[in-house]
Design a protein around this nucleic acid. Structure first.
Lengths: 252, 252
DNA sequence: GTGTTTATCGTCAGGCAGACGACTATGATC
DNA sequence: GATCATAGTCGTCTGCCTGACGATAAACAC
């Protein structure tokens, strides 16, 4: 059967981004303020239309670069690392999720080291890093006393799914290093786990676990005292991407 | 900005299904033979266009019912269980994945108990259960001596991703019970794990593990000798969906 | 009855995680 | 410069879980 436009309904396809980072011991997500209806003035996840000649991953990488300036980390070059991790999350296609038309959004999850202030791009009049718990709480008031409005569209669901993916994936992979600068200490990595999971971990057992897992961390030889206290060894992420046995998330 | 059709390129959106089951100690997937170009005569995954008023999950469930007659198991009714597990897998949107037009496919993964022969539906001139290793091998000859052609489109990649999802997910969830009839024995469940992972498991340790995990299995009181040997207790899947600690997949 | 098959219970050693003590090496404070 | 606070690093001990595997039980085939 040749191309028959009447055989299928037309869809718009977008990519939305859950960009996570750790700032001030809190898991934060990138939010942009909508400049146009619908949901004008409300916070939303960054995203945009997939172009005609673009792959989904390319579209997500392009949006990420536009919003944050981040380049996607190429895993085939483990030495140079100052890029974000990007992976497909899930696709959201409820017929009524966008009141204007039928939009299917392929959500992606990006993990980034702590960054300078975000730059607003495209149709967003503003952009900020916000703690995910603040973005996900329904109603009430944020830390600054400003009333909290839920995220636009179904973005609260998308964000919740992205956070859950990140929380579970750092259990069994080395993905937590994507939140760290290229060189980091064991303590800094531990604080990433603590921020993402929202728990406190025993520093001694954590140290034993991560340094005892072959291929997870590679010492660079340097040390730092940027966290205060005794100088700590600096590490890079090793080649191992899977953590076996996994890091155990404590019971709540 | 109001609805502006020129602001985005039009896409076709489809759902493709990776339907897995265990037959004769082998992990099998449902394949349909294509009756039209492109890839006419080649095997492909079942799937079809998402309708204008349909959610993605609805479209996947509809396609699954059309191809297999299976209804999707509703997890809110744990007692009645003779349905398939269905979950979204990933979305594939390479601009050239379909030579006719721009098609974005939201792949879904379905796990089903062993079924009678599949029924061909829609535009498929044939349908069959085939061992996944046979569908995934490149070139060569199948068990019946017939030359093996790769799956149409990017369906080999989709199938591989679905199989990998199933293999990893039965580690830490009770999903393996979706391959079993409503009542099953510990040995039957073990053979599911062995088929999906392609390994042999120690029957005694497996029995200890699954019966020792609270909420995983619920004895029905009955016994059966349908597998031969000493009568085995029958179980239903318990309410627990997460397996903690997980079932460990042996090293290869 | 004997052999075969499958199910189920038990035992034992090794590995790993949680709890936590002890020591080290810096900067900050008096 | 002594003291304190902070963070990092090394060890120890106990309990749980797993893998390996012996032993027994209850059916069927002959």
């Amino acid at each position: 059967m040749p191309y028959d436009p009447s055989a299928f309904p037309p869809f718009a396809v977008t990519v939305d981004l859950v960009v996570l980072t750790v700032r001030r011991h809190a898991l934060c997500a990138l939010a942009v303020r909508r400049g146009e209806p619908p949901f004008q003035g409300r916070w939303a996840l960054p995203g945009g239309f997939v172009r005609a000649d673009e792959d989904l991953a390319q579209a997500a990488a392009r949006e990420l670069a536009e919003e944050t300036g981040l380049r996607v980390h190429d895993p085939s070059v483990p030495a140079q690392d100052n890029g974000a991790h990007l992976e497909q999350l899930a696709t959201y296609g409820d017929p009524k999720r966008d009141p204007r038309m039928r939009v299917v959004s392929v959500a992606h999850l990006a993990l980034a080291p702590d960054l300078p202030a975000p730059r607003a791009g495209g149709d967003a009049s503003n952009a900020r890093w916000a703690p995910v718990e603040e973005l996900l709480q329904q109603g009430g008031y944020g830390r600054d006393g400003e009333p909290v409005a839920p995220l636009a569209f179904d973005h609260a669901q998308i964000l919740a799914d992205g956070v859950e993916r990140a929380r579970s994936k750092i259990e069994y992979s080395s993905l937590a290093t994507a939140f760290c600068p290229p060189e980091f200490t064991v303590g800094e990595l531990r604080r990433v786990y603590e921020a993402v999971w929202g728990v406190a971990l025993d520093p001694r057992n954590f140290h034993r676990k991560v340094t005892g897992t072959p291929g997870f961390l590679v010492p660079t030889g340097g040390t730092t005292t940027r966290q205060g206290g005794r100088p700590a060894q600096l590490f890079r992420a090793g080649g191992a991407t899977l953590l076996n046995p996994p890091m155990l998330r404590p019971e709540v």
